[in-house]
């Protein structure tokens, strides 16, 4: 199944326009799909996960029997409104750049006493119908508090600029059996695979749209997926080695995309096909 999907993706890409439709018919299709997406927007099952996440956030848990309410996600202890629009960022307490998901895990370790290993063992629910993980629920809750906030991923600290530079390099790095880079699929205008418009990260509006709508509830999976998962799955599609959860590479790519998406308005968790 997975294998077949990948192959059809590649074939579609090499043909470039996968349908034998006229341009106007394609535009009509695109308009109707847009309408479909709008109809789905009010009633996003990710809201259920946000509720679960909020409860978890405020619940005393872990060996230290503490809540996460004192967690500093970059705007000060206990502040969660808007944080997802200004992450990844440099954190002095760990002397490195962290993305939202890394920082949530960090708070669970420092405040609640969980171990990094147990928290990162299985961050995503992956089989159909499996209950979503606590990590997914916590992430859903926190990002939901950033709706409407303007993206402004900081580049003031040297380590933030280094993170961006590494992310950019990785974005253009070609490899794997198909010699693809992220840029192969994501730096071209009007590129599509099946009916999916691929965002061109060189264009601000494209980058904004992509960055501000993750995490997203994926209709095809019946589950909300996080930004870390999104990258993990693009690595898989690219036939790159598995992208480790919370790895420096994942954080750097998020920094790169976030900087490219400056001034976009956060709108996640979104809902996607």
């Amino acid at each position: 199944m997975k294998q077949r999907r990948w192959i059809s993706t590649v074939t579609a890409l090499s043909v470039s326009i996968p349908f034998a439709l006229s341009v106007s018919a394609q535009q009509d299709t695109q308009k109707e799909i847009e309408r479909y997406r709008q109809l789905l927007a009010d009633g996003n099952p990710a809201e259920l996960l946000e509720m679960r996440g909020e409860e978890l956030w405020k619940q005393k848990r872990g060996p230290k029997n503490a809540t996460l309410e004192a967690c500093d996600l970059g705007l000060g202890a206990g502040k969660i409104g808007g944080v997802n629009a200004v992450l990844p960022r440099y954190f002095a307490d760990v002397d490195r750049v962290m993305d939202l998901e890394s920082r949530i895990v960090h708070c669970q370790v420092t405040l609640q006493g969980f171990t990094q290993a147990e928290l990162t063992k299985r961050p995503y629910s992956l089989t159909v119908g499996e209950r979503q993980t606590d990590h997914e629920a916590l992430t859903a809750y926190v990002v939901g508090q950033s709706r409407g906030a303007a993206v402004n991923v900081p580049q003031a600290h040297a380590k933030e600029r280094e993170s961006f530079a590494r992310g950019e390099k990785m974005f253009y790095y070609k490899g794997g059996p198909y010699d693809f880079a992220c840029a192969t699929c994501h730096s071209v205008d009007g590129q599509r695979i099946r009916l999916q418009d691929l965002p061109n990260f060189q264009k601000a509006d494209n980058a904004q749209r992509a960055f501000t709508t993750w995490p997203a509830y994926r209709v095809s999976q019946g589950a909300m997926r996080t930004m870390q998962w999104r990258l993990y799955d693009c690595f898989r599609q690219q036939r790159f080695p598995e992208l480790a959860f919370l790895s420096q590479a994942s954080i750097d790519l998020i920094t790169y995309m976030g900087v490219k998406a400056k001034d976009g308005k956060m709108d996640s968790p979104a809902i996607k096909r």
């Binding site: 799909i33 309408r35 997406r37």
Partner: peptide
């Protein structure tokens, strides 16, 4: 009936 003419994913058709 309010429904899309085309649904991107048959798993969820409003």
């Amino acid at each position: 009936i309010t429904a899309p003419d085309i649904a991107e994913n048959g798993a969820v058709v409003p």
